[in-house]
């Protein structure tokens, strides 16, 4: 079974802070990580590899040269092959353009039974790239995978809903997107890390290598454009009720009653 896992290197947004003076993001020193949901996708692929013979896992990312680190981490966890699509021409891509690039790379990889993405990347929270790849490869998709089982050429999936889940059968090849309920990602072993840097390599592909039409990638190929960005204005300060005793609470309720809020 050939599995392609799409992973994205993202800034750990938990660590991103705003500079209160300038209102810009402080990105210096913010660590880069593999997107959380993508780790779950990779873990599930690795679990299949633990269980069955002949499972080959390729991790694929589109990103700047630094994304090499993310791919090495995936190799250290147990992936077999790693591909980095890196090119100035892909900068500024929206999800549509990103999925065009990834689709072209997947076509170049050639054979696959399962393409695994994360549900969404924490830097944009869009949850679009997985379904878009599925559409462009004309494959069935199941998103929000919280549990799955492979039997023959069929995958039986629990797809999470807001108030429960669906049980869905889908035949391979297919595209799946993982959520965190699916599993707990393993840590890379020391020997795995050693292998990832000494034994395995990261293949770097340019836009030319994947033979993608330049008109459908990067900023210019993106149907959506950012018109402006801004920091939201805080709403006006409210009333502070002085003190912290019975009187304070009493006053609060008097105001609420007066304004017919309660």
């Amino acid at each position: 079974m050939k599995i392609i896992v799409c992973i994205k290197q993202v800034p750990d947004t938990n660590e991103v802070k705003l500079d209160p003076k300038t209102g810009t993001l402080i990105r210096d020193g913010v660590p880069s990580i593999i997107n959380h949901d993508d780790m779950n996708a990779l873990e599930e692929a690795l679990k299949l590899k633990d269980r069955y013979e002949d499972v080959e896992i390729t991790v694929l990312t589109m990103g700047p040269p630094q994304a090499d680190v993310a791919l090495r981490e995936a190799l250290a966890m147990g992936a077999d092959r790693a591909i980095l699509v890196s090119d100035r021409a892909v900068a500024g891509s929206d999800t549509w353009a990103t999925s065009n690039t990834l689709t072209a790379a997947i076509k170049k990889i050639g054979s696959y039974d399962m393409i695994f993405c994360g549900r969404q990347a924490i830097d944009g929270d869009t949850a679009q790239v997985g379904p878009q790849i599925a559409e462009k490869l004309d494959l069935p998709q199941v998103t929000y995978v919280q549990k799955m089982e492979v039997k023959g050429d069929t995958v039986t999936v629990q797809r999470a809903l807001e108030d429960g889940y669906e049980i869905i059968d889908v035949k391979m090849p297919c595209v799946l997107t993982a959520i965190k309920e699916l599993n707990s990602p393993r840590y890379a072993s020391v020997s795995g890390i050693f292998d990832a840097y000494r034994e395995k390599n990261v293949e770097v592909w340019s836009a030319k290598d994947i033979e993608v039409d330049l008109a459908i990638i990067g900023l210019n190929g993106s149907p959506t454009n950012v018109r402006r960005t801004f920091t939201p204005d805080p709403k006006g300060k409210g009333t502070m009720i002085p003190g912290c005793d019975k009187g304070t609470v009493c006053e609060l309720f008097n105001i609420l009653k007066e304004k017919h809020i309660i």
């Binding site: 929206d94 999800t95 549509w96 999925s99 944009g124 929270d125 869009t126 949850a127 679009q128 790239v129 997985g130 379904p131 878009q132 599925a134 559409e135 462009k136 998709q141 998103t143 929000y144 993106s222 149907p223 959506t224």
Partner: peptide
């Protein structure tokens, strides 16, 4: 969120999430 991107990709148009 399953449907939106799939439709947008088939129509080759943009989709702005959330």
């Amino acid at each position: 969120r399953d449907l939106g991107p799939r439709i947008a990709a088939r129509l080759d148009t943009g989709l702005t999430a959330d």
